[in-house]
């Protein structure tokens, strides 16, 4: 350690080992492998989401308080701590709220070529974003507000997992303006909902039980 820092007086005295083990090689580290197994359950909201996702449909939940739409759904509107029970089906199109060009490999994701773009995807009609991979897009071309659509895996690879969408690719449509992209667009969407002109971004109600 740095010579500048004196040891605390109480710890300054060298440790005196008993004579008979004084010359034994010191233990420098102990390796204790820990293995604990957990059997997770997804919960009601995620279960409905994953079931629909297995049919290439995207389910969100609508807040009973002000109609804001959450995807993926977690069974709660975190602003008010109230349960969300109404499901809405969302299109597989949206825009990028913000993004990160990543040069760091992730444990367990050897399939990701570096660099890759991870982005907050705001689906049309949704009021929070969720993380997705952006593909078919040069890293220099990615923009906040860029319109994207889902590229689903082939049908024979679709399952009830979160990984059914390979990536999100640019649609070529005009960008969402920066000040309306991501969370910044929420106030305007709410106003549109309130006066009934929010048609374009208003998702339809869906019943998860219909699957």
């Amino acid at each position: 350690m740095s010579a500048k820092i004196p040891k605390p007086t109480a710890l300054a005295k060298p440790v005196q080992l008993p004579e008979r083990i004084a010359n034994v090689e010191q233990v420098r580290s102990v390796r204790t492998p820990i293995s604990l197994n957990y059997d997770f359950i997804p919960g009601q909201a995620a279960q409905a989401y994953l079931t629909a996702f297995g049919e290439k449909r995207i389910l969100g939940q609508r807040s009973p308080v002000d109609g804001a739409v959450f995807v993926p759904p977690r069974g709660v509107d975190p602003r008010f701590g109230v349960a969300t029970t109404e499901y809405v089906e969302l299109p597989d199109k949206g825009h990028i709220g913000s993004f990160c060009v990543t040069q760091v490999p992730i444990p367990g994701r050897d399939d990701l070529e570096l660099p890759y773009i991870s982005a907050w995807i705001f689906l049309d009609g949704a009021d929070i974003g969720f993380i997705g991979l952006v593909g078919e897009c040069d890293t220099a071309d990615c923009r906040i507000g860029m319109r994207v659509e889902a590229v689903w895996k082939d049908d024979d690879q679709i399952a009830q997992t979160a990984e059914n969408i390979k990536w999100w690719r640019p649609t070529g449509e005009p960008d969402v303006a920066f000040d309306q992209a991501g969370g910044r667009g929420f106030a305007a969407r709410q106003a549109a909902r309130a006066d009934g002109t929010g048609h374009a971004s208003q998702p339809n109600s869906a019943n998860p039980a219909s699957q």
Binding site: I41, P42, G43, Q44, A45, A46, Q47, R74, G75, V76, F80, G81, V82, A83
Partner: peptide, 26 residues
């Protein structure tokens, strides 16, 4: 075993219940 609910899902009614008892928000 809470075999259909996550921690969030089963705590919403519990926390809501005490908030309701005292008529208070978070």
């Amino acid at each position: 075993a809470m075999d259909t609910d996550t921690e969030v899902e089963f705590m919403v009614p519990v926390i809501s219940d005490v908030k309701r008892q005292v008529s208070m928000e978070a």
